[in-house]
């Protein structure tokens, strides 16, 4: 067992978000993320951004729980933005049909329009990542499976997804245990070691991790079959919950977000909001 505060997985809580039905949360996540994916309307994105950060606060999730994954995503996001810029620095001016130069640099000439476009991209990340993380951290995996099943996905797949989610903390724990054992053997993995050495050392953890995980999967799937998992076309769920008033509200909100996006599309004559014209 490792410090629980560093575990990326569901932990029971009491705030409003935990009380919602998993199906509601799933629909909310899917619709709102879809809305954010479609539109480039800065006003809408900013609103959702503020909203999702408020939600995050509301859920009382600790930074230590998500720091690793957030750092990872931020690094990936920055990389992505840089590449978008490198491949087509003129994309911004094409979309917004105007050109206000900040820095003259030949091919890499930076325009306000490009910066604005990249800013919108960044906003999209900031909108959807907290919502997805929030969903993962506040949804009981079994209820998640039940809700996936409810929206029409086969229960085999639903359960597999839920189990996978559930084993993230377990695998994290084994990873730490194995990592400690490897360090005890002399495999320096702390910051003292060179990066190449650390990567090589990490490979030594992966193998035992895979083997011990495979063994667990084998045991659990046997245990499941012995209790007739997969014997029927359908199954019921002990944890499934019926919808409450709040659930309808939240679902209404998510549908509303899609409607707003459609409306904005009409107003903006496309996906982009153009403050330059």
């Amino acid at each position: 067992m490792h410090d629980q505060n560093q575990i990326l997985g569901y932990q029971p809580g009491t705030s409003f978000i935990y009380q919602l039905n998993a199906t509601t949360k799933l629909i909310f996540m899917l619709l709102v993320s879809a809305a954010c994916m479609i539109t480039y309307d800065t006003r809408f994105l900013l609103a959702i951004c503020v909203f999702s950060i408020i939600l995050f606060k509301e859920a009382q999730i600790k930074w230590s729980q998500i720091s690793f994954i957030v750092k990872f995503i931020v690094a990936f996001m920055i990389l992505n933005l840089i590449f978008v810029y490198l491949f087509q620095p003129t994309y911004g001016q094409e979309i917004y049909h105007s050109r206000s130069i900040i820095i003259h640099a030949g091919y890499f000439t930076l325009t306000i329009q490009e910066v604005f476009y990249l800013f919108n991209l960044l906003l999209k990340y900031i909108c959807s990542i907290p919502i997805v993380l929030l969903f993962l951290l506040t949804t009981n995996p079994s209820q998640f499976a039940a809700s996936l099943n409810k929206i029409g996905i086969s229960y085999n797949i639903s359960y597999a997804v839920a189990l996978a989610l559930r084993y993230i903390p377990d695998i994290q724990n084994s990873y730490w245990a194995i990592s400690a054992a490897q360090q005890a053997r002399g495999n320096e993995l702390s910051k003292k070691a060179k990066l190449s050495q650390r990567i090589k050392g990490t490979l030594n953890i992966i193998m035992p991790l895979i083997f011990s995980s495979l063994e667990r999967i084998d045991t659990i799937s046997t245990a499941m079959q012995l209790r007739r998992f997969g014997s029927k076309k359908k199954r019921t769920w002990y944890v499934a919950r019926s919808f409450k008033k709040e659930d309808y509200w939240v679902m209404g909100l998510s549908v509303l977000s899609i409607l707003i996006v459609i409306l904005l599309w009409q107003l903006n004559h496309g996906r982009f909001y153009n403050p330059f014209m």
């Binding site: 009981n140 995996p141 079994s142 559930r166 659990i220 245990a223 499941m224 209790r227 007739r228 998992f229 997969g230 014997s231 029927k232 199954r235 019921t236 769920w237 002990y238 944890v239």
Partner: peptide
Amino acid sequence: IGLTVGEDIAFALEND
């Protein structure tokens, strides 16, 4: 298999 004791006990019945 279940996340909670109750769920685990219920597992076979869910499958039925």
